[in-house]
Simulated scan of single mutants.
Amino acid sequence: MASSRGKSFIGRFGVHIAVLVFVAIWTIPTLGILVSSLRDKDQLIVSGWWTALSTSSQTEAGRTDAADKQVEKDGKFLIMGNLFGAGDARTVTAFGTKAQQPTQFEAGTAADLGEGVTLQVNDDGSYVMSSPKAFEITRGQRVYFSASAPPRFTTDNYRTVLFSEGIGRSFINSLTVTIPATIIPILIAAYAAYALAWMRFPGRALLIAVIIGLLVVPLQMSLIPLLKLYNGVGLFFGVPAKTYLGIWLAHTGFGLPFAIYLLRSYIAGLPREIMESARIDGASDFEIFVKIVLPLSFPVLASFAIFQFLWVWNDLLVAMVFLGSGSDQLVLTGKLNALLGSRGGDWEILTTSAFVTIIVPLIVFFSLQRYFVRGLLAGSVKGG
């Protein structure tokens, strides 16, 4: 018994450790996005988010003042100034005058520039350029320096994203697309799943095989044929091409195979005795479906709702094709993508946008998460 209890304790401990590992694997990337979205953009491009609390170093270039700012002192001509702006807390660690050797001299030392000209850059960014004769340079001396800076955090990234023009409209567009595109497939798939699980009709097995086969069809392969079909039908009935109806139908078509497969697996595992008792009491298939199957199937319905909501909310390709890319048609992902520009190098906008887009899915997930695992196990255990 002691050995059995010992194994049971070890087993439970192992399960807890495994759960913690998986939670960490899923949480760390999200934490990284959050930290990166709050970092100063200059520090973000030179170091990873895990160094956010440590001092960062970056090599930059600047110029001294020109000859018109020189002063004469003790027989020498001096140009003095500071490479940093007011309130800059960075510290210069090394400097140089050539791009090939940007850290040739340590901060505080005098660099010989030839013909008696010296340049001294101090750790606070101040500099003194000295010459035995008057300077004649019309542009300042190019200076390269390595500067270390303390951690800097800011909310400017969020102000840029949340208060950019059109972001509110794109958020409403995303909700307008996502909510119906989540509800419609569930309604259709629930009826189809019940019929395929408990009703007998010719071609039922073939229909199930076709639905399973559709699970492996890539979205990109079916996107253009579906668009041509929709445009043809819309032209015949005089319906505009770029409408919410089109994108709802598109997401419904792409989501139905998985929805029917998942719901059928769960509904087929419901106890047969309940169905038979209801039939004996004179209940029709519709009454059994509405009063028995739907309430018992809520876990799997919630699970699919989470999946479908995430897919549609994060979608960009289908939205661009079926809804358009106009300022009044862009969904949130499209608008945030436009903020990145053509090169997409604004990392502070990218990380902030990523965190903004996951807020709503996180709310949906945590609202329905207690049904998530039960829904994922749909059909794994058959009823007696």
Rank of each mutant, 00 (worst) to 15 (best):
G114F: 01
E106M: 14
N122F: 02
R152N: 12
M129Y: 00
T155A: 11
R139P: 11
F135H: 00
F153W: 08
V92R: 01
R142C: 06
Q120F: 12
G140D: 00
R152A: 15
A99T: 13
S146I: 06
T103R: 09
K133S: 03
T138W: 11
Q100E: 15
D112A: 08
A94E: 08
P151T: 14
E136N: 11
S146C: 11
T155Y: 13
M129T: 00
R139Y: 14
G96D: 12
P151Y: 07
A149L: 09
Q141V: 04
D123C: 04
S148V: 12
G140N: 02
R152T: 15
F105V: 00
A107R: 00
R142I: 08
A134E: 08
Q141H: 04
A94N: 07
P151L: 05
E115M: 13
V143P: 00
T91G: 01
G114K: 08
R90E: 05
A134F: 02
T97H: 01
S146M: 12
S131M: 03
T109W: 06
A107P: 01
T93Q: 10
R152P: 11
S131K: 05
A89P: 11
Q104A: 10
E115S: 15
D112F: 05
E136P: 06
Q120Y: 09
L113I: 02
R90L: 10
T138C: 10
P151E: 01
T93W: 05
G125C: 06
R152K: 15
F105G: 07
A89I: 09
E106A: 15
N122M: 04
V143S: 01
Q141A: 05
T138I: 13
T155G: 11
Q101W: 13
Q120N: 14
Q101K: 12
G96T: 14
D112T: 07
Q100T: 14
E115W: 03
T103V: 05
V117I: 13
A111D: 11
L119I: 02
G108P: 06
R139D: 14
F145G: 07
A111L: 11
I137A: 03
G114N: 01
I137D: 12
P102Q: 06
Q141M: 04
Y127F: 13
N122Y: 05
G140C: 06
A147R: 03
V143L: 00
T97Q: 03
A99S: 15
A111P: 11
G108K: 03
T93P: 07
M129V: 02
T91P: 08
A89K: 12
A99N: 13
Y144P: 04
E136S: 08
Q101Y: 09
A89H: 11
